[in-house]
């Protein structure tokens, strides 16, 4: 369960997230959409307790992220934008470090490590330094780190960015397979991804919530073309092909 109430973030005079409110429940896969710079990542940073909001509140599984930061963070698995990793470590060292910090121990620790290594096909690169891995592998190490403690809430900032079509497909399958018991929020600007895995889509632009609907209902507005709907909503008028769109 995530409850976001009047969440606002200002940097100087610039408002990045403007009075955003919504909630979502387990079983939902929420696609968080918007043009670049719309405030998607900032919202995610506030939900995960990295950035403090200027106003408003976020509760994760009933715990206020500002006051009960650590408890809320234990419920969250987070893949930050760009999947930052400790480059000099190997995936094995890195995942063991995450397991330590997540306080996994004994049989469960080994079980979870084996499970994520299998799910994300990290076996062949376990002892190679992360530095030397391809972008796809790095992204998968980032995902493995996020799901290692089997969290109730998964926040994934552009999880399939930089993956090839096969890897994208696998990550989407993984998200789908976990979606029953978890609450998953993914930010993306790949619209086909929303249709493929999300049960709900929220579109924001300039930090404000513009649309909150199912992907099917959204697509229906544009005669089945989500790109068209996205452009119309985020640019506030008919599509202008010469303007740079968010995709």
């Amino acid at each position: 369960m995530i409850e976001i109430d009047s969440l606002t973030k200002r940097y100087g005079r610039h408002t990045v997230v403007d009075n955003l409110s919504f909630r979502c429940a387990p079983g939902e896969v929420l696609g968080f959409l918007g043009p670049n710079g719309a405030g998607k990542s900032t919202t995610m940073k506030m939900v995960t307790g990295f950035v403090a909001p200027s106003a408003g509140s976020v509760r994760v599984c009933g715990h206020d992220v500002q006051t009960d930061t650590l408890i809320a963070q234990r419920h969250i698995g987070y893949l930050p934008e760009g999947a930052p990793l400790y480059a000099e470590m190997t995936p094995r060292q890195f995942l063991e470090f995450i397991a330590d910090v997540r306080e996994l121990s004994g049989g469960r620790r080994q079980e979870r490590l084996d499970e994520v290594i299998r799910q994300l096909h990290l076996g062949p690169v376990l002892n190679q330094s992360i530095d030397t891995l391809s972008k796809g592998f790095k992204r998968r190490v980032g995902l493995a780190q996020a799901i290692l403690h089997d969290p109730d809430v998964l926040i994934l900032d552009e999880p399939t960015d930089g993956l090839d079509p096969n890897q994208k497909h696998e990550v989407r399958e993984l998200i789908r397979s976990m979606s029953k018991e978890k609450l998953i929020v993914i930010s993306t600007h790949i619209l086909e991804e929303v249709e493929a895995v999300c049960t709900r889509a929220i579109i924001i632009a300039d930090g404000r919530l513009l649309v909150d609907d199912t992907p099917e209902a959204l697509a229906a507005q544009g005669d089945g073309d989500l790109d068209e709907v996205f452009r119309r909503i985020t640019q506030g008028d008919a599509p202008a092909p010469d303007q740079e769109d968010a995709a």
Partner: peptide
Amino acid sequence: KSGTVELLMTLPVT
């Protein structure tokens, strides 16, 4: 610089 501070500070670590 590498952005790992975001990873570190969103883990349950004070």
